[in-house]
Design a protein around this nucleic acid. Structure first.
Lengths: 360, 360
DNA sequence: GATGGTTATGTGTCCGGTCACATTTTGAGG
DNA sequence: CCTCAAAATGTGACCGGACACATAACCATC
């Protein structure tokens, strides 16, 4: 329960007291069952190699000692940790969590353990996280996002395990990628608005600056910009303001700003459903009818978009599927016949038409 | 990049090929720097013990070999893994994620690494997750929720590391607890409604059944029930229906059901803000004015509650603070002077009055 | 220049498993 | 009852670090 105080405890910082082993070891079990360590080991990993009678005896010893094999020790010997590292921007974004769930769906049955960390959208922090993770000797590393600091990129480039970048653009990954084109998302939004007859199209995004930046959101905005230009439309209603990541509040506040600056805006694309819902709510408060007076489109297909009024038209990427595919890719790459070429899987995007986008 | 195929590869399942070491070891570094292993080890953990000149030489060797110390090996020797295990119901609930963030806030600076898993609200799965985690020899284990299967409870009871149950009731924890009273939350909701003059009070919750059950939500409901009874009010408008965990959709659907069954209901408490927001949206669709015709209260103070119209009155528990306090408790318990008695920290609850609750 | 206390560095062992290989036991067949 | 392959079990080394302790280098002092 409580740690035994080292005998030399002076109340000060006693850093180097090697705590006594409090766990039963394989030797304890082997003695109790009167077999060799190896037999115990076999009972636990290849039971069919051990005679039923002996096996039973060993299992009883295991149970009576509450023996739980130490995977740290096992890993050192087998050189297989069973860890797969996962780096997310944050744990608080459901879509990123879905990537983790998707990975777990595939990897948990194969006895892999996810090592999940996050970097709060900071490339600097991401680099130190990657470094820490590598010290744990994961068998593969999965990262949400393809933008890395110079140091992180160097780290990943010289690593000898599968590296999979997910939920981002699949162009020029370090090794492998499972994702979609963020620019394409922006283009889809633009095309949809244009098809609906809108010409005064705006957008809400964060301002990209320095270490903390939402590269994926920015890419979406660039896609929209490109589409607008292609159609000879103005891009002046695209608002980049505030810090990443965007939120409900961001959407509400910035929609107000956009409306003040460009009262003539007909349709707004938000880099995230969160901002879109915030914008929608701000419209309710201002008495701006959606979609009659203003159309709103989001990105990400968050649950909330389905219940708001009107329901939110959005662009969907299946993040759980991304996780699953990444997980399967990890298994393939770690398997007996790993694919030789880098995999670049594009899971595509779907425009989900609901109620928040009208037409002219 | 790709795994070297074992020389014996027949294309079949080659399970037991011990992959050759692909990482530089401390010996490699020591040879290159022409020092002993121990000097290298010291440079990396107690640099001040090594002469500046030697240190420099070692660091160069480290850099040129891209040496990353293997924490698996280190852990085996020091008997300190630096892992703190965290078991959540799911990764997709922001409040649980906030617990993880709070823990990280405190533990990351102390070089601990969270080992995060989730059990999809299944006690059975939770038990196997705990078992897997223990094999990794975490130095402490933090669990969201205090309800465990018989096996899990046994596992936790005989473990020799700090066990902290968080974000749940703090009564009778296995060891320590950081949380709040869910029943109290229900009572607070009831009291607030009653103060506002309502008598026909209802609630939305999931149906508790079997392995998958939302014990926390159920406790809130029981608190509300108790409060209603205490005031001689009917509890018949409390609706327990559908599977846990509740969601926006659940709230929307079940509010409809409640309204159909009890058109006279004046105020509804939802076990989660998610359900509350869903209910609110359903009201918008049905033309039921909130709060004029119906008052709605949630639990959890999710971001979305602040932006909807009307904004959502809710009961707030500071989940990130829970995480931080749990993290600090871990540090204390692992420190040189661990508290002897079990800690039971109640972080309390706050009623956040916003727009969705009116009065008679 | 011998003495002794720092400071700096090195050696052997162990952590708790698993691997490769060796040895013993078992049982079918002659 | 012996032979011999197959099945069952055991032995020693090793994975990559860190600890405890030993030894060497340094430097001031007398």
């Amino acid at each position: 329960m409580t740690r035994a105080l080292p005998p030399t405890a002076k109340g000060g910082a006693v850093a180097s007291d090697r705590p006594p082993s409090r766990h039963a070891t394989i030797r304890d079990v082997s003695k109790l069952a009167d077999v060799s360590r190896m037999t115990v080991s076999r009972v636990l990993s290849n039971p069919e190699l051990v005679k039923a009678e002996t096996r039973e005896r060993v299992l009883q010893a295991v149970a009576s000692l509450n023996y739980v094999p130490d995977r740290t020790a096992g890993s050192l010997s087998t050189r297989r940790t069973g860890f797969v590292a996962l780096v997310l921007p944050t744990l608080t974004n459901v879509n990123f969590s879905m990537v983790a769930h998707g990975l777990t769906d595939v990897l948990r049955p194969k006895a892999f353990q996810l090592l999940i960390t996050y970097d709060n959208y900071s490339q600097q922090e991401r680099e130190t996280q990657i470094r820490n993770l590598l010290a744990r000797r994961p068998e593969a590393i999965v990262l949400v996002g393809a933008a890395h600091s110079r140091g992180a990129a160097a780290l990943l480039a010289q690593v000898d395990i599968p590296v999979i970048e997910v939920a981002d653009d699949t162009t020029r990954p370090v090794q492998h990628a499972v994702g979609f084109s963020n620019q394409e998302a922006g283009r889809m939004a633009g095309q949809h608005f244009i098809r609906r007859g809108f010409t005064r199209i705006g957008a809400l995004a964060s301002q990209p600056h320095g270490d903390l930046a939402d590269h994926r959101g920015e890419a979406r905005i660039r896609g929209l910009e490109a589409e607008l230009r292609l159609n000879g439309l103005s891009t002046e209603r695209i608002l980049r303001d505030g810090d990443a990541p965007v939120s409900y509040d961001h959407g509400a506040a910035k929609l107000g700003l956009l409306l003040d600056r460009h009262p003539d805006v007909e349709a707004v694309f938000c880099v995230s459903d969160l901002a879109a819902v915030g914008a929608l709510m701000e419209c309710q408060r201002r008495g701006v009818a959606v979609p009659d007076q203003l159309s709103i489109m989001g990105f990400g297909d968050f649950d909330i978009g389905r219940v708001v009024n009107p329901s939110l038209t959005t662009i969907r990427a299946d993040f759980q599927d991304i996780g699953r595919q990444a997980g399967q890719l990890v298994l393939d790459l770690l398997g007996p016949a790993p694919p030789a070429a880098p995999e670049m899987i594009d899971v595509g995007l779907t425009l989900v038409e609901r109620g928040s986008v009208g037409h002219r």
